[in-house]
C-alpha cells in the first residue's frame, strides 16, 4: 500500500493506493496519527483495490479521531470497495463526497 499526501486548502488529502488489509492497515493508522492531521481529512480511495476488516477498523478509528479536527470524508471509492462499505453499513457512518 502507498499513501500519497496532498493539500486541498487546509484539508489533508490522502490517496490510498493498493490494498488496505491486516498487513497494511497499521501503516495507515500510524500515518494518520503521527501526522496529527488537524484541519480536516479526505481519503481518496480511487486507487484502493481492496479493504478488509482491519482496514475498516482504521477508517472507523480515523473518522472518530477527526470529529474534533475538521472531520473526515471519503471520495472516489471504487465499485468493489463501495460494495464492502455498503454491506457493512459504513456508508451510514462515513461522510461520502
Amino acid at each position: 500500500m502507498e499513501i500519497i499526501e496532498s493539500k486541498e486548502g487546509n484539508r489533508t488529502v490522502l490517496r490510498i493506493v493498493g490494498r488496505l488489509d491486516t498487513t497494511t492497515a497499521p501503516d495507515l493508522d500510524s500515518y494518520i496519527r503521527s501526522n496529527q492531521v488537524a484541519d480536516g481529512l479526505v481519503l481518496d480511495l480511487s486507487e484502493l483495490e481492496y479493504i478488509s476488516s482491519a482496514g475498516l477498523r482504521v477508517l472507523l478509528a480515523a473518522n472518530k479521531l477527526m470529529v474534533n479536527r475538521g472531520g473526515m470524508s471519503v471520495r472516489n471509492v471504487q465499485d468493489m470497495v463501495m460494495e464492502v462499505l455498503e454491506a457493512t453499513g459504513f456508508t451510514d457512518v462515513l461522510t461520502m463526497e
Partner: peptide, 17 residues
Amino acid sequence: YVQPETYLLYRDLAISK
C-alpha cells in the same frame, strides 16, 4: 472464514452507533 478482526469491527461499529 471471516477476515481477522471482523468480530472486533462488529463491536466497534455497534459501539460507534
